[in-house]
Simulated scan of single mutants.
Amino acid sequence: MLKVVHLSTTPLVGAPGNLCRALNDHGQVQARWVCLRSDVGLYQQMPFATDLCWQRQREEALHAIEQADVLHLHNFIDLDSADFQPVDFRRRWQQGQPMVRQFHSQPALVAQGTGRTVAQVHACPIPKLVIPQYPERHFATARLVPNMVYVPPRPPAAAPAGAPRALACIGYAPSRFNSAHSSRWDTKGYPETVTVLRRLARAARARGLHVEIDLIEQVGHAECLRRKAGCDLFIDDLVTGSYHLNTLEALAQGVPCATYLDARTAEVVRQVTGGHDLPVVNVGLEHAATVLLELCARPERLQALGVAGRAWMDRHWTGVHAAQTLGDIYRSVAAHPGRPFAQRFDEDDTGERWHVREQHDALWQARRAGWPRPVPPWLLGAKTAAGRVARALHLR
Rank of each mutant, 00 (worst) to 15 (best):
G309V: 10
G284W: 02
A304K: 09
R310A: 15
V291G: 02
V272P: 04
L292A: 11
V280N: 03
R310H: 15
L302R: 09
P299Q: 09
A308I: 05
V281Q: 07
D277V: 12
L295N: 10
V291L: 09
V280W: 02
G274E: 00
V272Y: 05
T290H: 08
W312D: 08
A308P: 06
A288V: 02
R310C: 13
Q271A: 12
G306Y: 09
V291M: 06
V272D: 03
P279V: 04
N282C: 08
V272N: 04
V269F: 00
E267G: 12
R301H: 11
V281W: 05
L305E: 10
L293R: 11
V269Q: 01
L285K: 09
W312K: 09
W312N: 09
L302H: 07
V307Y: 08
L285S: 04
L285W: 04
A304M: 07
A308D: 12
H287K: 14
E267S: 15
P279D: 05
H276Q: 15
Q303T: 13
L278P: 02
G274M: 00
E300N: 13
L302T: 10
V268K: 04
L292R: 12
G306K: 07
H287L: 10
A288P: 01
G274T: 02
G306N: 05
R270C: 15
E267Y: 09
V291E: 13
C296Y: 12
A304S: 13
L295E: 08
L295Y: 15
V280Q: 04
A297H: 06
V291D: 06
V307K: 14
R270D: 10
A308L: 06
R310S: 13
V291H: 11
V283T: 10
L293Q: 13
L278N: 03
L302V: 06
N282Y: 03
L278A: 03
L305G: 07
E300W: 06
Q303R: 15
P299Y: 08
L305D: 04
E286P: 01
V268G: 03
G274R: 00
R298N: 15
L302M: 10
G284Y: 00
W312M: 11
W312C: 07
V281S: 06
L293P: 11
T290G: 01
E286V: 10
V291N: 01
A288D: 00
H276K: 13
A311H: 14
Q271Y: 02
M313F: 05
V283L: 00
V283K: 02
L278D: 02
T290R: 12
G275Q: 00
A288G: 00
G306M: 11
V280D: 01
E294T: 07
V269G: 02
R301E: 14
N282A: 03
A304N: 07
G309F: 09
C296S: 12
